[in-house]
Nucleic acid binder design. Structure first.
Length: 791
DNA sequence: ATGGTGCATGTTTAC
DNA sequence: TAAACATGCACCATG
C-alpha cells in the first residue's frame, strides 16, 4: 500500500498504513479515513454526504435555496460538487458554507456563475481559462500555514490524467478514483493556477493546469466531431463532452460521452421544458437492437448514472423518451469475470418505437431537477448514403431522431455510432458525411472542419471498421438488408422471369391461356415501359455491354444479362455498334426519376456506373428506392402490376389492378376487381350454405337449397358472362390448372393457399378494399365449417 | 418447436 | 494484460 496523503486540507497527514475504513461509499466499498483527522481519502466520496440524488441539485442548508449558479451551464452540467472530499459546498446564493452531514469542516470551492466551457464561443478563451475563472476558493485556511488543497486536489481533478499524460505524479499521489470525466470541468484544483505553491513532483501547478487541461480537452476532439474550442459554432458542434459527475470510479470512455450539440440539448430541454444533463450514449450493437431486448450498458456508465444495484435481478428503471413516453426497463447485471455486465432488459419496444437499429445511437440524459432519466436516439446514416447510392451534400446522412431531436450521427469519426458502418460501404469520404445544422435544431449539425482533418481517429476508425466489417456480420447484414433485401412485393414481381430453360406448359382455364412453368422464376433485367402518344406501350432496356437504350416490345422479357445482341426484335439495333434511338420518350417517362437524373448528369462515366441495373442490382436499386421512399421513376410506367408469368393482356386479379399505391377502392366501388370479389364471395357463401343444408338434410333445407341453386346458377352465369367480357374470377389461379377456389374448397384444398392468393394479390395490387376482408371472411367461414365437415 | 434467460466465451480495447 | 463488451449457447419454460 502506497503512502496516502490526507485530502483534508486542514490535516494533510501522510501515512502508508494507517488508514481506517470508514463509512460505506455508494459503491459499497468502505472509504479510507485519515488516521489523524478522520477525513476520507477516497475522492469518490465527494457528493457522498450531500449526494445529489440524480438531479445534481441540492438545497442550501442555510438559506434553503437550491444551489443554482444561474448560468446556462446549469442546463448542461451539475453545477456544484463537493470539493474537498468531505461533502461541503458553498451556496452560491448566500455564499455560506454548508457543512456536510458529518459536521466536518468545510473546505470547499464554490462555483461562480460561469459559462459552460464548451459554450465559451465568444470569449475566445480556452476552456481551461474559463474553468479557472469560473471557480473560486471560498475556504479559508483553517490551519496556519496555508491551504494545502493543492496538495491533494490533483488527485481528484485532472490529477489522474496527469498520471498517464505526464507521468509526473508519484504513485503515492495517484488518486484512488477516476472521476476525471465527471469532475474535469469542475476540478477546483486548477482554480487558481497562480495559487499553486507546491509542485507536484516538480511540475508547477500552472504547468499542470495547462497540460492537463489541454490534454483533457484534446481528448474529445480526437474522437468526436468537435469544433475548435472557442468557435462560435460550438453550440452546433457535436462535441463529445465529459458527462456530469457520477458516482462511479472509472471514468467514461470518450465513446460514451454524450455528443449532443448544444442546440440539441436545448431542443430536448425545450421539448420537455426541463433542464437536461447529458450523461452518456451508446451505439447499438446488433444484439442490442435485436429481438432479445437487452441493451448492454457500458459498465462505467451504468455504475455512474444508474441506481446502484446489488442483486443480479436488478431493479425496474423508468426512463422517459423525449416524446414524454415513459418506459420501464429492468436494469440489472450479470456476473462476468469477477465483474459485472449491466444490461437494460425489455428495450425492444422502445427501440422499435424509436425505429432504431444496430449502428444507431441511444443517448441517456438526466432531467434537472428531478433526476428523471431521459432516453434519446440518433440514427445512423441512412442506408442509401451508406451504400453510396447517391452523392449527397451530407444533409441526408442522418435521420431525424425519433426522439424529436434530430441529432447528427454520433460523429463520423467517433469510435461509436456510424463507425460501425464499414468505410468501404460508405461510398463517400467521411467529410462528406458531416452534416449542417438546419438552424432550427431539427436537422443536421454543421460540418466540422476540425474533425475532417483529424486523421488519427480516422485511421483508428478504419481499423475498427475493417474489423467490424469482417466480423460483425450481423450488423453488416442488417445494413445490407436495409439496402438490398427490403423491396416490395411488386418490385420483386417485376423482376421475376421464367427460368430460361424452362418450357411452359399451356394451361387453359376458363378460356384463358396460362403458361405454367415447372422451374422457379429467376431474376430478370429491369426495364422501363413507356407509352407513346398513341397509347401504344413499349419497353426500354439498357444493354449491359454498351449501356445504350433499346426499344423493345412491351411484352419482351429479358434475362438477367441482356445485350444488344439479344435484341431479336430489332435487327437494326441488335448490335452495340448501332446508334441509340432518341430517348425522348424514355426521358419523359423517367423525368424526375433518379435513374434518369443519374444517367443524364453523370456523363459517360456515370452512364457506365449508373447504368441500368440488372437482376439483383436492380433489386437493390429498387430496394433502396423503396427504403428511401425515393421518387424513382416507376419502372413500369403506365402499366399495371403484373405477375411474373403473366403476359400482356392477362386479366387476372393482379394484372387488372391499378399499380400499387393508387388508393383503396371504396366499398361501393363497382369496378371490375371489386365486383369480381363480391361475386366470388357471394358464390362462396352460397356454397357454404349449400353444404350446410346438405348436412342438415331437412326437407325445408332441400327447398331452400333448390332456390339457392337457382341463385347460384344465376351467379355462375353472371360470372361466366363477366369472364367472357374480359374479367376473370378473383380466385383464378394462373398456377392452378383447376383454378377455381370453389373447386378447391370442395376438394378440401388448403384454405391457406386460397386465402393467401386472394389477400396476397390484393395486397400486391392496389389494396382493394374488400378483398382482404372478404378473404378473411371466407377464411372464417371455412374454418368454422371444417371441423363440422371433418367430423 | 419456440422463445426467454443466464452464463460463458471470444474479441476488442484501454492501460 | 486485463477489463469491457458483443454475442453464442445451453438450459428451461411455455404453447
Amino acid at each position: 500500500m502506497g503512502s496516502k496523503m490526507c485530502m483534508n486540507a486542514t490535516c494533510g497527514a501522510t501515512s502508508t498504513v494507517e488508514w481506517k475504513k470508514g463509512w460505506p461509499l455508494r459503491s459499497g466499498a468502505l472509504a479510507d479515513l485519515c488516521f489523524r483527522c478522520g477525513s476520507a481519502y477516497e475522492s469518490s466520496l465527494f457528493c457522498e454526504t450531500f449526494h445529489m440524488d440524480q438531479s445534481g441539485w441540492r438545497e442550501c442548508y442555510l438559506c434553503s435555496k437550491r444551489l443554482h449558479c444561474g448560468c446556462i451551464a446549469s442546463k448542461l452540467m451539475v453545477e456544484f460538487m463537493d470539493y474537498g472530499g468531505i461533502g461541503c459546498t458553498t451556496c452560491v446564493n448566500c455564499n455560506q458554507l454548508n457543512l456536510n452531514k458529518r459536521g466536518e469542516s468545510p473546505n470547499v470551492f464554490s462555483r461562480l456563475p460561469m459559462k459552460t466551457p464548451h459554450m465559451n464561443g465568444e470569449s475566445g478563451m480556452s476552456e481551461a481559462d474559463l474553468f479557472s475563472q469560473s471557480l473560486r476558493c471560498d475556504s479559508q485556511p483553517l490551519v496556519p500555514g496555508g491551504d494545502k488543497r493543492e496538495d491533494f486536489m490533483p488527485h481528484r481533478g485532472f490529477g489522474h490524467l496527469l498520471k498517464s499524460e505526464m507521468h509526473e505524479s508519484s504513485p503515492s499521489q495517484q488518486p484512488s478514483l477516476n472521476m476525471a470525466l465527471a469532475s474535469l470541468p469542475y476540478s477546483p484544483s486548477f482554480a487558481n493556477p497562480g495559487d499553486g505553491k507546491k509542485d507536484m513532483n516538480g511540475a508547477s501547478q500552472s504547468h499542470i493546469v495547462q497540460s492537463s487541461a489541454s490534454s483533457v480537452l484534446q481528448r474529445p476532439s480526437k474522437t468526436v466531431i468537435g469544433t475548435p474550442v472557442g468557435s462560435s459554432k460550438s453550440a452546433h458542434a457535436r462535441i463529445g463532452r465529459p458527462p456530469v459527475e457520477g458516482r462511479g470510479k472509472g471514468h467514461l470512455l470518450p465513446r460514451y460521452w454524450p455528443k449532443y450539440t448544444d442546440k440539441e440539448v436545448q431542443q430536448i430541454s425545450g421539448n420537455l421544458n426541463l433542464n437536461i444533463v447529458p450523461l452518456f450514449e451508446k451505439t447499438l450493437s446488433a444484439s442490442d437492437a435485436g429481438r432479445i431486448g437487452r441493451l448492454v450498458l457500458p459498465k462505467a456508465c451504468a455504475e455512474a448514472y444508474f441506481p446502484p444495484i446489488s442483486q443480479s435481478e436488478g431493479i425496474p428503471l423508468k426512463i422517459q423518451d423525449v416524446r414524454g413516453k415513459e418506459w420501464t426497463f429492468q436494469f440489472r447485471f450479470w456476473p462476468n469475470n469477477n465483474s459485472r455486465m449491466y444490461v437494460l432488459e425489455g428495450v425492444t419496444p422502445c427501440i422499435q418505437s424509436m425505429m432504431l437499429q444496430a449502428g444507431d445511437t441511444v443517448t441517456f440524459s438526466r432531467v434537472d431537477p428531478g433526476g428523471k432519466l431521459i432516453m434519446g436516439s440518433r440514427k445512423v446514416a441512412n442506408a442509401g448514403d451508406i451504400q453510396g447510392g447517391g452523392v449527397t451534400n451530407g444533409t441526408s446522412n442522418e435521420d431525424t431522431s425519433s426522439s424529436g431531436v434530430t441529432e447528427t450521427p454520433s460523429s463520423v469519426n467517433a469510435a461509436s455510432g456510424p463507425s460501425h458502418i464499414p468505410e468501404e460501404m460508405r461510398g463517400l469520404p467521411e467529410h462528406m458525411t458531416s452534416s449542417p445544422y438546419d438552424g432550427n435544431g431539427l436537422k443536421k449539425s454543421e460540418t466540422n472542419g476540425a474533425m475532417m482533418c483529424d486523421d488519427l481517429p480516422r485511421v483508428k476508425e478504419r481499423k475498427r471498421s475493417r474489423t467490424i466489417g469482417t466480423k460483425n456480420k450481423r450488423l453488416l447484414l442488417h445494413s445490407e438488408e436495409s439496402m438490398e433485401l427490403r423491396f416490395t412485393w411488386e418490385e420483386t414481381q417485376e423482376l421475376l422471369r421464367p427460368a430460361p430453360s424452362s418450357k411452359p406448359s399451356i394451361v387453359l382455364v376458363e378460356d384463358h391461356e396460362f403458361e405454367e412453368f415447372d422451374d422457379p422464376p429467376v431474376f430478370g433485367k429491369r426495364t422501363f415501359i413507356t407509352s407513346r402518344p398513341s397509347g401504344e406501350q413499349e419497353r426500354w432496356a439498357s444493354c449491359d455491354e454498351c449501356s445504350k437504350w433499346r426499344r423493345l416490345p412491351v411484352d419482351a422479357l429479358l434475362s438477367l444479362k441482356w445485350t444488344c445482341v439479344d435484341n431479336v426484335w430489332d435487327e437494326t439495333r441488335c448490335s452495340c455498334s448501332a446508334p441509340e434511338e432518341s430517348l425522348k420518350e424514355l426521358e419523359n417517362a423517367l423525368r424526375g426519376g433518379k435513374e434518369y437524373k443519374k444517367r443524364r448528369s453523370g456523363g459517360s462515366q456515370a452512364a457506365k456506373t449508373v447504368q441500368e441495373p440488372s437482376g439483383l442490382d436492380a433489386l437493390a436499386s429498387a430496394a433502396s428506392a423503396a427504403v428511401l421512399g425515393d421518387a424513382l421513376g416507376e419502372p413500369e410506367v403506365a402499366t399495371t402490376t403484373r405477375h411474373p408469368r403473366h403476359r400482356v393482356g392477362c386479366s387476372c386479379i393482379v394484372c387488372i389492378q391499378p399499380p400499387s399505391g393508387k388508393g383503396r377502392h371504396k366499398p361501393s366501388c363497382a369496378c371490375n376487381v371489386c365486383s369480381t370479389v363480391k361475386r366470388r364471395f357471394k358464390t362462396l357463401m352460397m356454397r357454404r350454405k349449400k353444404k350446410q343444408l346438405e348436412r342438415d338434410g331437412t326437407a325445408a333445407a332441400a327447398a331452400e337449397l333448390e332456390s339457392m341453386e337457382v341463385e347460384g346458377k344465376q351467379a355462375e352465369t353472371d360470372k361466366s358472362k363477366g369472364e367472357k367480357e374480359g374479367r376473370i374470377d378473383l380466385n383464378s389461379d394462373p398456377y392452378n390448372r383447376e383454378d377455381n377456389e370453389a373447386v378447391a374448397v370442395e376438394k378440401g384444398e388448403s384454405r391457406r393457399r386460397e386465402v393467401g392468393e386472394s389477400s396476397g394479390e390484393a395486397q400486391g395490387g392496389g389494396d382493394v378494399v374488400g378483398i382482404t376482408e372478404l378473404a378473411t371472411e371466407a377464411e372464417k367461414i371455412k374454418i368454422s365449417e371444417e371441423p363440422k365437415g371433418s367430423n
